[in-house]
Write a protein that binds this DNA or RNA. Structure first.
Length: 248
DNA sequence: AGGTCTGTTCAGCT
DNA sequence: TAGCTGAACAGACC
């Protein structure tokens, strides 16, 4: 389940193909590349080179030398693979072939990823790992939705998905059900600190699965800190686990 | 073999 | 406008 850490890994993968000339584009999946017609992305990118890979939250975009920007999103199960053979089960939903024989593919079992031209990021909030303290207080510490839903709202801040949200709230000791507007400034600052720490750890350890609470994220799981049985509920539309003992 | 669960984004509703 | 619900997708699991 790609979240910000996996998106950052994908960005680094894309950087490996900087400067290589695109000689063919496989853009026939009209769901992943909607609203483009097959061949449209191919026509726009063939002959160009990727020059830089950027990321905000889980959104990726790639600049080309003189051509359009290519936007990529991993969805739920996507990854970027470089210089690998095409997936035998057809999971490569979009791909670029390079003159040197190499290849970049969006590999995605469930086709919830995206590959489009000129992505619109105007409604995507600042990156969860980069957002300033002031902006975090302002964008997160308001509204009546549960704090967990707010953290996962990509328009507020971008990059926090379900597993990372549980990890962040666990570290910050905050009950995921609390209305986001009811948090104090000190709690919001602590939440931002926990967000940055959780992201850093996840990137270093290779994904949002590497958290403290994640291994216990199952019915009957127990809090690694105090041993309390974790609670489970649907919050913000997603399955949520938290410790009733220290998350208040 | 069918039913349920998974989680990200988006359209559509109140 | 804020917040919620269900759709889209397709594989894992029971």
């Amino acid at each position: 389940m790609p979240e910000l850490p996996e998106a950052e890994r994908a960005r680094r993968q894309i950087e490996r193909v900087r400067g290589r000339e695109i000689v063919a584009v496989h853009d026939r999946d009209t769901y992943v590349s909607r609203p483009h017609a097959p061949g449209e992305i191919a026509a726009a990118l063939t002959g160009h080179r990727l020059v830089d890979a950027h990321r905000r939250g889980k959104y990726l975009w790639v600049e080309t030398d003189t051509g359009p920007v290519l936007g990529l999103h991993l969805g739920m199960t996507g990854s970027i693979v470089v210089d690998e053979e095409p997936h035998p089960r057809g999971w490569d939903r979009f791909a670029l072939d390079f003159r040197d024989g190499g290849r970049l593919a969006l590999r995605d079992r469930r086709r919830l990823g995206r590959a489009i031209l000129q992505p619109d990021l105007s409604r995507v909030g600042p990156d969860a790992g980069e957002v300033s303290r002031e902006e975090f207080r302002e964008r997160i510490g308001r509204g009546t939705a549960p704090i967990k839903a707010r953290l996962m709202d990509q328009r507020a801040i971008s990059g926090v998905g379900n597993l990372l949200a549980d990890e962040i709230l666990y570290r910050a000791g905050i009950d995921p059900r609390r209305p986001s507007g009811g948090l104090s400034e000190a709690e919001l600052d602590g939440l931002r600190r926990a967000t940055r720490a959780a992201i850093r750890t996840a990137i270093r350890r290779g994904g949002a699965h590497a958290g403290e609470i994640n291994p216990e994220r199952r019915p009957g799981g127990r809090c690694p800190r105090d041993g309390a049985e974790l609670r489970r509920a649907r919050i913000g539309g997603r399955t949520t686990y938290w410790c009733p003992q220290h998350q208040r």
